[in-house]
Simulated assay, not measured.
Amino acid sequence: MISQPIFLVGPMGAGKSTIGKLLAAQLGLPFADSDKVIEDRSGADIPWIFDVEGEAGFRRRESAVLHDLCGGESQVVATGGGIVLMPENRALLKNHGFVVYLRASLDQLVERTSKNSNRPLLQVADPRAKLQEILLQREPFYDEVADLVCDTDDCTPKQAAQMVVDRLTAISSG
């Protein structure tokens, strides 16, 4: 179907990791989560990296991992929500894979992230306002790199994965 990596982009809470695992299983492809790769390589979790190295240090690690994941192997890759912030990352995504933007409304993102304390950028007094700020900043970049946009608001992760498969099938047969 697609002979290059399929990168899932979108804000935290869009479902990249959950949908990515289901999508990989449906397509019979390996799955990688860039945040998990960073944690495995560094021996530390994302909040610790943010605490010690700051967001800039984390973004450097994220870019290095993305570069390695662009190696050409067909796989499904869930990326971190901020991977699109650096122009070189957007170029890598566009030139070395098929990019699916998993889009969700602010209300859905707030609901989906409210129970997870493992999100350093949301450890603020008003997580909703922070999510809105993040969306305003990043949405143009998600749109810029996307080969395909899928709205995930009104569907389960399984339905979202099937929607991506159906659209990929239509693209590759069209």
Rank of each mutant, 00 (worst) to 15 (best):
A170T: 12
G57K: 05
F31Y: 15
A44H: 14
Y142W: 07
E73S: 12
R103T: 07
A14G: 07
D143C: 14
L93F: 10
L23S: 04
L102A: 05
L135V: 08
R128N: 09
Q159E: 15
N116I: 06
L121R: 08
L66N: 04
L85W: 03
P30K: 04
I134Q: 07
D126S: 06
S42L: 14
M86C: 08
G10W: 04
A160D: 04
F31S: 06
Y101V: 06
G80E: 00
K94G: 10
D154C: 14
Q159D: 14
P47C: 06
D147S: 09
G72W: 09
P11Y: 12
D40H: 13
W48F: 11
F98N: 02
T169S: 14
K158F: 14
L122V: 08
S173K: 11
G57I: 06
S42G: 10
D51V: 05
S117E: 13
C150H: 11
S17N: 01
S173F: 07
F58H: 03
S34W: 04
Y101R: 06
F50E: 03
L168E: 03
D154K: 14
H67N: 11
V84N: 02
D126Q: 09
I83S: 00
M1C: 05
L22F: 03
L85E: 13
G13Q: 01
L122E: 05
R167I: 07
F50A: 07
L136A: 14
V100H: 05
T152I: 09
E39R: 03
K21V: 11
I6T: 06
K94T: 11
V52K: 13
